Measured scan of single mutants.
Amino acid sequence: HTCEKCSTSIANQAVRIQEGRYRHPGCYTCADCGLNLKMRGHFWVGDELYCEKHAR
């Protein structure tokens, strides 16, 4: 898989955010504040991922 955020190959663990879309665990972050979304879930606003606070 290729990380959709940093565009590099994912060798080990990948986070599947949608069918066919993956990120490194470290790239699974809010587009606004950079908070890691692991164990928090994500919210779509347009084509970007946000934490609950910044999705509003």
Rank of each mutant, 00 (worst) to 15 (best):
V15R: 02
G46H: 06
A55R: 12
T2Q: 05
C51P: 02
T8W: 10
E48W: 03
L49V: 10
R23L: 07
P25V: 08
E4P: 02
H42A: 08
T29I: 11
E4V: 08
H24C: 15
H42P: 10
N12I: 12
N12K: 05
A31P: 06
G34Q: 11
Q18P: 03
C6A: 04
L37R: 02
S7G: 12
A55N: 07
E19T: 10
T2V: 01
G20M: 08
L37K: 03
A55Y: 13
G26R: 14
A14Y: 07
A14L: 07
R23S: 06
T8K: 15
R40L: 14
N36V: 09
R21W: 02
Q13K: 03
E4H: 13
E19S: 07
R16A: 14
E19K: 12
R23N: 08
A11E: 14
E4N: 14
H54I: 01
Y28A: 10
P25M: 13
H54S: 03
K5C: 10
P25H: 08
D32T: 13
G46P: 05
E4L: 03
K38G: 13
T2L: 00
G34K: 13
S9K: 14
A11D: 15
V15N: 03
T29K: 08
Q18I: 15
R16F: 15
Y50K: 12
R16E: 12
T29V: 05
E52D: 12
M39A: 15
M39V: 12
T29N: 08
R16V: 14
E52W: 09
V15P: 02
Q18A: 12
K53T: 12
A31K: 14
N36G: 09
N36K: 03
D32Q: 05
K38V: 03
P25Y: 04
G26P: 11
F43Y: 08
Y22G: 04
I10S: 03
C27L: 02
A31Q: 10
L37Q: 02
E19G: 04
T8V: 14
C3E: 00
K38N: 09
R16D: 09
C51R: 00
G26N: 10
Q13R: 01
L49G: 06
E19W: 02
I17G: 06
I17Y: 04
T2I: 14
Y50Q: 06
H24F: 00
R23D: 03
M39L: 09
F43T: 11
S9C: 04
G26L: 14
Q18C: 10
K53M: 08
R16M: 14
K5N: 15
R16G: 11
G34P: 04
L37P: 03
